[in-house]
Simulated assay, not measured.
Amino acid sequence: MTFETLNADFFGFENQLSDQEKQLIVELRAYLDTEVRPIVNGLWARAEFLPPSIVKGLADLGLFGQPWDETKRFDNSAVFRGWVALELARVDASVATLVGVQNGLVMGSIAVAGSPEQRTEWLPKLASGEILGAFGLTEPLSGSDTAQGLRTTATKEGDSWTLNGAKRWIGNGSISDITIIWAKDTADGQVKGFIVPTSTPGYSATVIENKQALRIVQNADIVLENVVVPESNRLQHSKSFRETAAVLRLTRAEVAWAAVGNSIGAYDAAVKYAGERVQFGKTIGSHQLVQDLLAKSLGNITSSIAMVVRVSAMLDEGTQRDEHSSLAKFFTTARMRETVAWCREIFGGNGIVLDYDVIRFFADAEAIYSYEGTREMNTLIVGRSITGTAAFV
């Protein structure tokens, strides 16, 4: 199999990848096209999680644990990891979310805030897909204000901690083997992270029903009632929300990449449909208004690719800051919303039928637009950088 840049990569940014990185992209595309693409519409319609064989297949490709020394297959770049997120999302955003949660939020929490012993114990199990993880930060009454408004508590009692509280919108929360729970220490008021096996007494998770975006992802409400975990399960380097923010900084840029991938999924479907659908005696792709929608969509995608390539390169260089990933996240997700709407418009009435794919990308865009920091919160992070003044309430 030879490497070819995507049609939507109009300026050929993918050519910046190394030969080894390109080869894995080729393998990933082949796997997604043969094993994942044929089943995603059915899973999405039924709100069912991926079969275990698919999770194992993703793990076997080395998608879990790419950045971490204990588990990475080769010395890959942040730009490459972004392209992986894009490739996953252009087939299905739920698949990209699964990998993002496992690889970034869960393994990232342990890699960033865990001790060497914790990294050695947990990262290989997560990388192999032997266990699945979830990331428990958002709460029923605390979303954008988690830095200050976290209500879940952790109380030290001898050599163990007792956790009490609730979490909401936790991806993989009902099927995970462990969940990283962020809680406020009752002694010093600082946020700390804990590795919580989901079999621990007092831990319960309930799938959130009637969700109309990212339907393959099993988001859950989690309740913690006197959940006792040993000190050895506290992330040893988590001393405040700074460590939580460091994890989010790593993953926010990859969400921007997933937004671009979701846009491309809708764009690819629209281009294909425009070449097949005949109206007024010719394909609709030969009509000016359809070409206008496609050209505007490609413009959004191209500008977004340029931004995410650069922001991930800055991560590789060690120069990326919160405001950089925040600008990328809110810009690309806003452009994604425009793009999926224009692409859905090309289908007319057929655009609301799942058989044509585009409605799945259209609906999933709303979730990507909201998670990992809303547009408003990310604009305030950027605004603080511009003006030097924090405008958070």
Score class of each variant (00 low, 15 high):
residue 229 V to W: 01
residue 202 G to N: 05
residue 275 G to T: 12
residue 209 E to I: 00
residue 236 Q to G: 15
residue 219 N to W: 03
residue 252 R to W: 00
residue 171 G to T: 15
residue 268 D to G: 03
residue 252 R to K: 12
residue 260 V to H: 08
residue 194 F to I: 04
residue 197 P to H: 07
residue 248 L to A: 04
residue 273 Y to L: 12
residue 277 R to W: 04
residue 172 N to H: 13
residue 286 S to A: 13
residue 215 R to D: 08
residue 187 A to T: 14
residue 287 H to F: 12
residue 176 S to F: 03
residue 199 S to D: 15
residue 194 F to H: 10
residue 170 I to Q: 07
residue 192 K to F: 03
residue 176 S to T: 15
residue 260 V to I: 14
residue 256 A to Y: 00
residue 184 K to I: 08
residue 197 P to I: 09
residue 271 V to L: 15
residue 202 G to C: 06
residue 276 E to Q: 15
residue 190 Q to F: 10
residue 213 A to L: 01
residue 178 I to Q: 11
residue 178 I to F: 02
residue 287 H to D: 13
residue 264 I to P: 05
residue 209 E to G: 06
residue 284 I to M: 05
residue 164 N to E: 04
residue 240 S to K: 03
residue 183 A to D: 11
residue 246 A to K: 10
residue 256 A to F: 00
residue 243 E to M: 09
residue 264 I to W: 07
residue 203 Y to D: 01
residue 174 S to H: 05
residue 202 G to L: 04
residue 182 W to Q: 13
residue 257 W to R: 07
residue 229 V to I: 06
residue 281 G to C: 08
residue 211 K to T: 13
residue 205 A to R: 07
residue 288 Q to S: 13
residue 280 F to T: 11
residue 211 K to C: 01
residue 205 A to I: 07
residue 240 S to T: 14
residue 226 N to Q: 15
residue 216 I to C: 05
residue 168 R to W: 10
residue 177 D to N: 15
residue 251 T to G: 04
residue 227 V to E: 04
residue 280 F to P: 00
residue 206 T to D: 11
residue 198 T to K: 02
residue 196 V to R: 02
residue 225 E to D: 15
residue 279 Q to A: 14
residue 242 R to Y: 01
residue 175 I to W: 00
residue 197 P to F: 07
residue 194 F to E: 05
residue 175 I to C: 01
residue 212 Q to T: 14
residue 217 V to R: 02
residue 168 R to I: 08
residue 185 D to G: 02
residue 227 V to S: 09
residue 192 K to W: 00
residue 214 L to N: 13
residue 236 Q to I: 02
residue 182 W to T: 11
residue 199 S to H: 12
residue 182 W to C: 01
residue 275 G to D: 13
residue 170 I to K: 03
residue 268 D to V: 10
residue 253 A to I: 06
residue 285 G to L: 04
residue 191 V to H: 12
residue 259 A to K: 03
residue 182 W to Y: 14
residue 173 G to Q: 09
residue 201 P to I: 10
residue 223 V to A: 15
residue 248 L to I: 03
residue 198 T to Q: 04
residue 261 G to R: 02
residue 205 A to K: 08
residue 210 N to T: 07
residue 241 F to S: 14
residue 217 V to T: 14
residue 273 Y to S: 06
residue 234 R to F: 00
residue 177 D to P: 01
residue 191 V to I: 15
residue 251 T to K: 08
residue 268 D to K: 13
residue 198 T to I: 06
